[in-house]
């Protein structure tokens, strides 16, 4: 959604790591799993708000702002954990990471729910409409009397929230919080979005394509694993796929413009 507004969020990986570690810390300190989940989501919301504030109200370039928050989040994570992973031992996290409801793994259900919600927001709500409009032409939106700043802010907050949510899933899957968790997530996320046909310059794209893009990235990684390709080469492959996708995005756009 951030990319739809013509922005970018590089901080998701760092957010995932910090949220996961603080959640694990909260769990160890209080023994309350729900408090830990809230802590993770809270961290996500907070970093999202920081990003949103600097991008929309201070009018800084999103690339720089989120690069800075990425570094901040990673730094705080290392300070807090002193580089060591934190173990998580809680039935709630067990359930989130490894449970089944009606034969479907819980993480899959959560992700499916997120896609449904995002799809609904993008297509059926005023906020979703504005995301597309702002990405398409921010100036025109402003001159139509729309509060562009507030809506951009909300998009980043939402992105941070989702990063917090994914940290909960990841921590629950591993039953521990890794300070290096989420490394390269921003890359995967952006790659999925672009592969799904969302334009990096904003205004075009959707949740269905992104889901497909995410599958492609996932299948690519998994497939390379199965083929016994060294994990070192996997990033090379990913990089090449992203470059190819961006090139295609550009090619489609220039043909559209020359009409």
């Amino acid at each position: 959604m951030v990319i739809l507004t013509g922005g970018i969020d590089l901080s998701v990986g760092g957010t995932v790591a910090l949220a996961g570690c603080l959640a694990a810390g909260a769990l160890q300190a209080t023994g309350n799993s729900w408090l830990a989940v809230l802590a993770a989501l809270g961290v996500g919301l907070m970093i999202g708000s920081v990003n949103g504030f600097f991008v929309s109200y201070a009018k800084l370039p999103p690339f720089i702002v989120t690069l800075a928050t990425l570094a901040l989040a990673r730094g705080f994570t290392l300070v807090y954990t002193e580089g060591r992973p934190l173990l998580v031992d809680s039935p709630v996290f067990d359930m989130i990471g490894g449970g089944f409801i009606a034969g479907i793994p819980v993480p899959v259900l959560i992700v499916a729910a997120v896609y449904v919600v995002v799809g609904f927001v993008l297509n059926q709500t005023k906020f979703g409409r504005l995301i597309y409009a702002i990405g398409g032409n921010e100036q025109a939106c402003k001159l139509s009397g729309i509060n562009v700043e507030r809506n951009k802010m909300l998009v980043y907050v939402w992105c941070g929230f989702l990063a917090g949510l994914s940290s909960v899933i990841l921590t629950a899957r591993l039953l521990s919080a890794q300070p290096t968790a989420g490394a390269g997530y921003e890359l995967d996320a952006i790659a999925a979005v672009i592969l799904g046909g969302t334009s990096l310059s904003g205004g075009e794209g959707g949740v269905r394509g992104t889901l497909i893009g995410a599958f492609i990235i996932g299948v690519l990684a998994n497939g390379l694993n199965l083929l016994n390709v060294s994990p070192f080469y996997q990033d090379v492959a990913k990089g090449a796929v992203i470059l190819a996708a961006v090139l295609m995005d550009k090619a489609f756009h220039s043909t559209a413009d020359s009409r």
Binding site: T125, Y132, A133, G136, N137, A140, C141
Partner: peptide, 28 residues
């Protein structure tokens, strides 16, 4: 540059100024 969102449809451009009137609690 300032009047229209070129990539959006005719319909979405027309209602850009009146989204409050065509939505209920934020749902269009």
């Amino acid at each position: 540059e300032e009047g229209l969102v070129q990539l959006l449809s005719v319909s979405k451009n027309i209602t850009l100024t009146v989204l409050d009137n065509v939505s209920h609690m934020g749902v269009l």
